[in-house]
Simulated assay, not measured.
Amino acid sequence: MGFPINRYRRLRKNENIRRLVRETTLSVDDLIYPIFIEDGQNIKKEIPSMPGIYRWSLDRINEELDEVVSLGIPAVLLFGIPSYKDEVGSDTWNDEGIIQRAIKHIKKNYPNLYVITDVCFCEYTSHGHCGVLHNHDVDNDLTLENTRKQVISHAKAGADMVAPSGMMDGVVKTIREALDSAGFYDIPIMAYSAKYASSYYGPFREAADSTPAFGDRRTYQMDPANRLEALREVALDIEEGADIVMVKPALAYLDIIRDIKNNFNIPLAAYNVSGEYSMIKAAGKLGWIDEKKVMMETLTSIKRAGSDIIITYFAKEVARILKNG
């Protein structure tokens, strides 16, 4: 038998043919950029474990947003660091809270930038957990009652989309009913449907001052060992009214992204989380990897696995590369 007729290297000969047959491509249209906004004045504070990522006060946030807009990034995901915390995270539904003021500022000054708000309590509670505590655990239904107030406050401030991240049972239905009853029918929900109790969140907790004062979040976030549970969570969120579903983290859960893509016909987001970002940054700084190439390969793998949307701290760097060809 002679040499095989198919020589796949024919289609790898040079960059032009590789571009023509490339199956997966990244676009700036795929990206959402997370931003941390801190209550206070004249704040531009780099997060030590996340080089290049900052906390911003509202009086300086335009420095960040001008670049985001100029790069063509379509959306931002807002996280607030308040000056006041209490047991229930009441600043989340304060109409003059840090996130509410940030939404108003962005919609006034950057009306075409799409604003998504993280809906949770961990940054706002004195104990760092994602809701109201009862017997040293988060009370699901009491937390849902406060979630209603939070999303209405975000909607009134002008949020384009809300993204509940606390993994409370019934949260999507609760939010959909709350928004609809207040007349906000057109605000979509991006559900953190498969959010795992991951060790990759460490740098974020430094960034958002959200480290739990005791215990961990395994009673409400998913066990990293579970796969089929993610499909059940996604199915329920869709049934309850989610417009977009999400997998978080992304890189260690590419199989989950593909499972969801294969089983559901709904836009799918993946969160390329802080630990994934920081590892690449650290290895790049030490010269162990080509940081930019690994960054692009990583995000391409997330897109290839099936994600339509990628939430990533690399968004600005990727957008610059794409803009420059």
Rank of each mutant, 00 (worst) to 15 (best):
G241I: 08
S307D: 11
A319G: 05
S49Y: 07
S210E: 00
N272V: 03
I302M: 03
K195A: 04
S301C: 15
V318T: 05
D169G: 12
S307N: 06
V115Y: 08
I189W: 00
S49R: 11
F79N: 11
V119K: 08
Y33L: 14
T143S: 05
L20Y: 13
Y185E: 07
D30L: 10
N16G: 09
I189Q: 01
R205L: 07
L254G: 09
P224K: 04
E15W: 12
L254W: 08
V234T: 08
V318I: 15
K292S: 08
R7Q: 13
P34W: 09
A194S: 11
I310K: 01
A75D: 11
R205P: 09
A159F: 02
S181V: 00
G89C: 10
S153H: 04
S274A: 05
F264M: 06
M167V: 05
M295L: 01
I311Q: 00
M168L: 14
Y84N: 11
R19V: 10
G241E: 05
R304M: 04
P203K: 05
L144I: 04
R232N: 13
I257R: 00
T117D: 08
I98W: 02
H154S: 04
A102E: 02
E23T: 15
D141V: 00
K292E: 13
E291Y: 09
A282C: 08
Y84E: 13
R18E: 01
H105P: 11
V21W: 13
D86M: 11
W93T: 04
H129A: 08
N112F: 11
E123V: 10
L26G: 11
M279Q: 14
F184Q: 03
D118T: 09
E23Q: 15
T25I: 09
E23P: 13
G215C: 07
E123Y: 07
E96V: 15
G40V: 06
L286I: 12
V273W: 01
V132L: 10
G52K: 10
F121T: 06
F264L: 04
L144K: 00
Y110K: 07
Y277F: 07
Y313D: 04
R227T: 09
F36I: 14
